[in-house]
Amino acid sequence: MNSRRISYFEASARARVAALADAGSFREYCPPAERRTSPHLARLDAPVAFDDGVVVGSATVDGRPVLIAAQEGRFNGGAVGEVHGAKIRGLLERAAREKPAAVLLLVDSGGVRLHEANAGLIAISEIMRALMAAQAAGVPVFAFVGGSCGAFGGMGIVTRLCDEVIMSEEGRLGLSGPEVIETVKGVGEFDSRDRALVWRVTGGKLRRALGEATRLVDDDARDFRAAAIAALSNHRRAPADLADLKAAQAALARRRSAHPETRDGLEVWRALGLPQPEAVPMLSSDAFNRQLHELSAEA
């Protein structure tokens, strides 16, 4: 049965950690038995989880020490509350001190948990600072996005702070979810029920094509692990000094002018010169990566 694909999209946070880490190497901090549940959910009479929807701990990946946080998208949409956020922040602070080979953030979150919205918003800001402090201490942080909630809201920002962003096509990355935009701005702005459009605007292939995702893999936890191992040996570094950030600023401005009216990923495929823009959604990640590589080789 080992040859069977393990759908990362469907796997629980714990199953993802198990699939990414070397067998038996994971040690959890603040494990469920400690019952660090959310007092705020309880006060609102909502169900709580023993791990508050995030698993944090240490492990090895291909023998290299890492710290891992994995959000459980099925518990309240992976949303960040006080305890949940504090666990991720604490892990990043541990990283700055212990200097593992990397921190792996398995993001699966719609952003702030509304039941404790203020605590969640602040927690995300604390995660952002702790993440950049870990990077400043020389520890790279890799984000993995391929769950049903994607990486949205503040966790969409956190994801883009990471040195590497590894996504599957099923993964989505953005700030405001399509449902929110549709509710406020109307269905003409964003039809959230047009699922194919949603993925063309936020999905893994678009993010890879725009260079936001550094690696695109198929929806298989074993592929995510392979990407993690590859990133551990050779990874992109997030821009950090003045020169880097000036270059990043120029690149972001260039992107806006390169796609002046674009509102659909299809136009991005066309603008990039992919041979069959309409066929892109059905390409395997390998085939898509190959096409992108060929384009960049031509350019």
Partner: peptide
């Protein structure tokens, strides 16, 4: 709130501001 901003990666722009 806009589809175009989402497509272009507004979250990435915000991350860039945070880095600056």
């Amino acid at each position: 709130l806009s589809r175009r901003e989402e497509l272009l990666g507004l979250n990435g722009c915000f991350a860039h501001v945070a880095r600056c």
